[in-house]
Amino acid sequence: MSKKLLSGPYLIWMVGFTVIPLILIVYYGLTDKNGVFTLANIISIASAEHSKALWLSLGLSFVSTLVCLLLAYPLAMILRKRNIGKGSFVVFIFILPMWMNFLLRTLAWQTLLERNGVINGLLSALHLPSQSLINTPGAIVLGMVYNFLPFMVLPIYNVLCKIDDNTINAAKDLGANFWQTLFLIWLPLSVPGIISGITMVFVPALTTFVISNLLGGSKILLIGNVIEQEFTKGSNWHLGSGLSLVLMVFILASMALIAKYDKNGEGTAF
């Protein structure tokens, strides 16, 4: 009995700072300034300005997730083939950037891409015309891919490491070529890792406001920026909460996706 009392502080903490805050978001999202029930905050996602931001966020995070997947899968395959083991230095190198403060990583790209930044400096040294690289959707995608690539590599790498070499060799012995092995063996067996990686990239990319703020300038608004501004600059918390509820639908959907495809937790980053 006394053991159960140990969970007391935690339960009080979690109710106070996790459950009640979430209930507050739902409350704010479903009421107006006078505390009257309304769906207006949620429906406002359909307004021209907000739906544009949502579609842009969905589009950019979709593209970033795809690029991450295409870059990460071959990388994970090569790392596995080298069979360098979990504690190896090479794997360490590829996940180290994950530990860098992500503001600094984004700051680094800002330095490279700016109008008078490093890349344009190099171009002008070569007498090439300078490019407007920053404040474009492309810059945002680049920032997302750079920030979230390790989150895609790690779960895929871990799932690939669990595939038995004999399975691959058997496929080869039976005459399968590279592409057949890839599509019939590698990919189906690594689905849990792929799904896990996709959600780990897609959710933070969809909800970001920092990357779009630093690399996209003030003209490109993602849904994260809209919500952030409602809470910090504007003061319509009801609208901001309503839009957050819409975002949570996408977060819940990706959690459901994981639950469906990765029942045994194979795609975990461990």
Binding site: S7, L11, M14, G16, F17, T18, V19, I20, P21, L22, L24, I25, Y28, V203, P204, L206, T207, F209, G224, I227, E228, F231, W237, G240, S241, S244, L247, M248, I251, M255
Partner: peptide, 27 residues
């Protein structure tokens, strides 16, 4: 049930956790 609640801050997007806490502190 308790592990489900434990999962919430890890699964939720940081922006949602952030604003929900801000609303709670003010409340």
């Amino acid at each position: 049930v308790i592990m489900g609640i434990t999962n919430i801050p890890m699964l939720n997007a940081d922006i949602v956790t952030g604003i929900s806490l801000m609303l709670a502190f003010i409340a």
